[in-house]
Measured scan of single mutants.
Amino acid sequence: KLLSSIEQACDICRLKKLKCSKEKPKCAKCLKNNWECRYSPKTKRSPLTRAHLTEVESRLERLE
């Protein structure tokens, strides 16, 4: 599967780190437990900047 097509777990399953069936409108866990089942939009991760990478590398060197 391509990364862009990976389905996201519902908010509660993601928060509780449960295996989500990803069914809509309610996944199996939410249906069974009568929880409100919501699927928040995916958040875009910002790409690493060179400055951040350099900072992490220098912190790693100090720890070694």
Results as ranks from 00 to 15, higher is better:
47 P>F: 01
15 L>F: 12
42 K>I: 10
18 L>Q: 08
38 R>Q: 11
9 A>P: 03
44 K>I: 13
23 E>Q: 14
46 S>A: 08
2 L>G: 13
48 L>M: 05
54 T>Q: 11
45 R>E: 07
13 C>M: 04
30 C>L: 01
10 C>M: 05
30 C>P: 01
50 R>Y: 06
12 I>C: 11
4 S>K: 05
60 L>P: 02
17 K>G: 00
39 Y>S: 04
34 N>P: 02
9 A>L: 00
60 L>D: 02
10 C>P: 00
36 E>D: 15
7 E>K: 08
55 E>Y: 15
12 I>Y: 13
4 S>G: 07
22 K>R: 11
15 L>H: 10
27 C>W: 01
31 L>Y: 13
17 K>M: 01
63 L>Q: 02
34 N>S: 11
42 K>Y: 15
22 K>H: 09
23 E>F: 07
32 K>S: 10
13 C>K: 02
48 L>D: 01
29 K>R: 07
5 S>N: 09
13 C>R: 08
53 L>T: 01
37 C>S: 05
46 S>C: 03
6 I>L: 12
27 C>Y: 02
52 H>R: 09
11 D>V: 06
53 L>G: 02
3 L>E: 14
62 R>T: 12
40 S>F: 05
4 S>I: 13
46 S>P: 11
59 R>Q: 13
22 K>W: 04
45 R>S: 01
56 V>C: 15
37 C>I: 03
58 S>H: 15
4 S>W: 09
43 T>W: 03
9 A>E: 00
19 K>E: 03
33 N>T: 09
38 R>G: 13
57 E>Q: 06
12 I>E: 12
53 L>Q: 00
42 K>N: 08
26 K>R: 15
51 A>M: 11
39 Y>E: 05
48 L>A: 01
42 K>G: 09
24 K>N: 15
26 K>T: 08
55 E>H: 10
4 S>R: 06
27 C>L: 00
26 K>I: 15
56 V>P: 03
46 S>Q: 04
24 K>Y: 15
13 C>P: 02
37 C>G: 07
50 R>A: 01
20 C>I: 05
42 K>T: 10
31 L>W: 14
34 N>E: 14
33 N>F: 11
18 L>M: 15
23 E>M: 12
62 R>Q: 14
59 R>I: 01
24 K>P: 08
25 P>L: 05
38 R>V: 13
58 S>P: 05
10 C>S: 01
35 W>G: 13
21 S>W: 02
37 C>M: 04
13 C>S: 00
61 E>Q: 12
5 S>L: 13
8 Q>N: 12
22 K>D: 04
59 R>H: 09
17 K>D: 03
25 P>W: 02
56 V>W: 02
11 D>Y: 04
25 P>A: 06
7 E>F: 11
36 E>G: 12
7 E>Y: 04
35 W>A: 15
45 R>Y: 00
54 T>W: 05
53 L>I: 04
37 C>P: 00
15 L>I: 09
38 R>W: 09
46 S>T: 10
35 W>E: 10
28 A>D: 14
7 E>L: 10
3 L>I: 11
31 L>H: 14
22 K>G: 03
59 R>M: 07
50 R>S: 07
22 K>N: 06
31 L>C: 12
59 R>E: 03
53 L>K: 05
60 L>F: 09
28 A>S: 07
45 R>W: 02
39 Y>K: 01
18 L>V: 00
35 W>L: 14
13 C>E: 05
32 K>L: 10
50 R>W: 03
35 W>D: 12
40 S>P: 00
58 S>L: 11
38 R>P: 06
2 L>S: 14
61 E>A: 10
56 V>I: 07
36 E>L: 12
30 C>V: 05
49 T>R: 01
8 Q>G: 08
44 K>V: 14
61 E>T: 15
46 S>R: 03
34 N>Q: 15
23 E>S: 14
23 E>H: 14
